[in-house]
């Protein structure tokens, strides 16, 4: 995920300082990995360097000094371009589960046991996400991001079920390669 574009997007609502941006990011993308403050700070500096954002001023009343940033015209333009750009659909298949299964076969491990354990872990996470999604008073943003994750986990699960059913053939194929 492009942190600089997300920050640009948050700045589009009006000038803001680093800590505020981090808080709003975590609110807006509830199930995502929370942003580190250091990362926000370096990203903002790069945006200023590239002319996409600029310093509006500082305000330091009753606390540590805080720099206010705002988006430039170039920044707004770049944001529009990025938001409309199509994401390349899975250019590389990175499937750690599959890698583990193959390695496990190569090293004469127990891929079936691994898949069972992984399935249980996936289900546990799906139950968590479902609980988050259906808790009373959950906002739509949270529900939708949980849904996104649920659908991906579900896809993984279905893939694991198919793979588990065809492990014998896969083992023969990997061993003979």
């Amino acid at each position: 995920m492009s942190t600089r574009h997300v920050l640009l997007g948050l700045l589009a609502a009006g000038p803001s300082h680093g800590y505020d941006l981090k808080r709003r990011h975590d609110e807006q993308f509830p199930q995502a990995r929370p942003l580190a403050y250091g990362q926000v700070y370096t990203t903002l500096q790069r945006l200023v360097r590239d002319g996409l954002a600029e310093v509006e001023g500082t305000d330091s009343e009753g606390g540590p000094e805080r720099t206010l940033y705002r988006s430039t015209d170039a920044g707004a333009h770049e944001l529009t371009r990025w938001a409309g750009e199509v994401m390349p659909p899975a250019p590389f298949v990175t499937n750690e589960i599959f890698a583990k299964v193959v390695v496990s076969i190569l090293a004469s491990g127990d891929p079936a046991a691994y898949l069972t354990a992984q399935r249980a872990a996936h289900m546990a996470r799906m139950r968590e996400l479902t609980a988050v999604k259906t808790a009373p008073g959950t906002d739509l943003a949270t529900a939708l991001s949980a849904d996104y994750a649920l659908n991906h986990l579900d896809a993984d699960l279905r893939w694991m079920t198919t793979t588990a059913a065809r492990l014998t053939t896969l083992t023969a194929e990997v061993d003979s390669a």
Binding site: L129, T130, L150
Partner: peptide, 20 residues
């Protein structure tokens, strides 16, 4: 459907008439 099963507290899987 795993997404429906995720509403439950616990899951058991049947395979050929017995629990997995």
């Amino acid at each position: 459907d795993a997404q429906v099963a995720a509403y439950a507290d616990r899951e058991v899987t049947l395979r050929d008439g017995v629990l997995a």
